[in-house]
Amino acid sequence: MPIEPAADPARPHAFAAYLRAVARGPTLGRPLDEAEAEAAMGMILDGAVEPVQLGALLLVLRYRTEAPSELAGFVRAVRARLRRPEAAAVDLDWPSYADRHKQLPYFLLAALLLAQNGVRVLMHGIPGEGPATTPVCLAALGIEPATDVEDAARKLDQGGFAYLPLTILSPRLAELFALRPFLGLRTPVHTAARELNPFGAPCQIQGVFHPTYLELHQATQRLLGQKRAVTFKGGGGEGQRNPDKPCRTLTLVDGVPGEEVWPALAYGEPYPWRGEALEPRKLADLWSGAWAEPGPTAAVTGTVALCLRLLGRARTMEEAQTMAESLWRERRLLLAA
């Protein structure tokens, strides 16, 4: 379909200014500052841009990699349009946006173990494809997604855990995710959604797929005023520690950036992570003890240890790991209990 000419060529579209800023080449092009990025994303969310403009911005930023100022501005624009319950205290924000699992999402058990021990965890994400998506696996554990933000608040009060789909949290942002088949790749929208922290939790766990995005997320978290955060290369791009390898983490503690490298966890014979059967019921079996497997158990306790240190409940990595293993041994086998 041919592009329709502007109604008045002498008066460029308001959004064109943002495109000129980012797309004028390696010499004149520049990242948007936070205010510009917030205004640009505000126009996108409000339906005030043309499809060709939306695609142009997303692909240019993807090509040269989005800047922290751009991500922070995008997040602020989305947050300004979110509905939040008046009282929904959250301790730990847990984004889950990869959701194309090549291994079972054992991080769900880590989140639930923390919830059983007094940590209020809000997980948010967008359903993916395949037999072991986050909603499917949560259903196998007897947990249904929140139907709206008020329902999320109730679930947090009742069990300390809630999963809020992006389609409920921000339908318009979820629509932008659906552009991937048309554009052929992920866009800065996928990166920004991970930093939404919609209920303002003081702590955030952030698992990413590409190590080059570690510094980008840490810088964005600082611009957004996040108090405490841990960001690392997680299994499948999720907040799940790989126990087979040392885990480099970038941290924020009271807004101050830092770095820690957690050691690999010895647990016996290597587990076939990429070759395992993606059967969601295995998560329930691991929790109940009907299936005992050292590798997945180490993934759970290793992830919990990261969170305990993040939350300030452990002073050292060793103390955090010992505490995580103790919580796992003492877990209540009925998740609803």
Rank of each mutant, 00 (worst) to 15 (best):
1 M>C: 07
3 I>N: 10
3 I>M: 12
6 A>S: 11
9 P>Q: 02
9 P>Y: 12
12 P>S: 13
13 H>P: 04
14 A>W: 01
19 L>T: 03
20 R>Y: 10
29 G>Y: 06
37 A>T: 02
44 I>Q: 03
45 L>Q: 12
49 V>R: 00
51 P>Q: 07
58 L>P: 02
64 R>T: 14
64 R>F: 08
66 E>W: 11
71 L>K: 01
72 A>V: 08
76 R>D: 07
77 A>W: 06
77 A>Q: 01
78 V>E: 01
80 A>E: 13
85 P>G: 03
86 E>I: 11
88 A>Y: 13
93 D>R: 05
96 S>L: 15
102 K>F: 15
107 F>R: 12
111 A>S: 13
116 Q>F: 06
118 G>W: 01
119 V>C: 01
122 L>N: 08
123 M>C: 12
125 G>L: 03
126 I>C: 01
130 G>M: 05
132 A>C: 12
136 V>Y: 01
137 C>R: 07
138 L>W: 05
143 I>P: 04
145 P>A: 07
149 V>M: 12
151 D>A: 14
151 D>I: 04
160 G>T: 14
166 L>S: 13
167 T>L: 09
169 L>Y: 09
186 R>M: 13
194 R>Q: 15
196 L>T: 03
197 N>C: 04
198 P>S: 08
199 F>A: 04
203 C>K: 01
204 Q>K: 12
204 Q>W: 05
209 F>S: 06
212 T>A: 14
212 T>E: 14
213 Y>K: 04
216 L>R: 11
216 L>S: 03
216 L>A: 11
222 R>H: 01
226 Q>R: 07
228 R>L: 06
234 G>F: 02
234 G>Y: 03
235 G>D: 03
237 G>R: 09
248 R>I: 05
255 G>Y: 02
263 P>L: 03
265 L>N: 06
266 A>D: 14
268 G>S: 11
270 P>V: 03
273 W>T: 06
275 G>I: 07
275 G>F: 06
277 A>M: 08
277 A>E: 08
278 L>W: 06
281 R>M: 07
283 L>H: 01
286 L>W: 00
289 G>P: 07
289 G>R: 03
293 E>R: 08
294 P>L: 09
295 G>W: 10
297 T>I: 15
299 A>I: 02
300 V>H: 02
301 T>Y: 02
302 G>I: 00
304 V>K: 07
308 L>V: 08
315 R>F: 00
316 T>C: 02
316 T>D: 13
316 T>Y: 05
319 E>Q: 12
322 T>K: 14
323 M>S: 14
329 R>H: 08
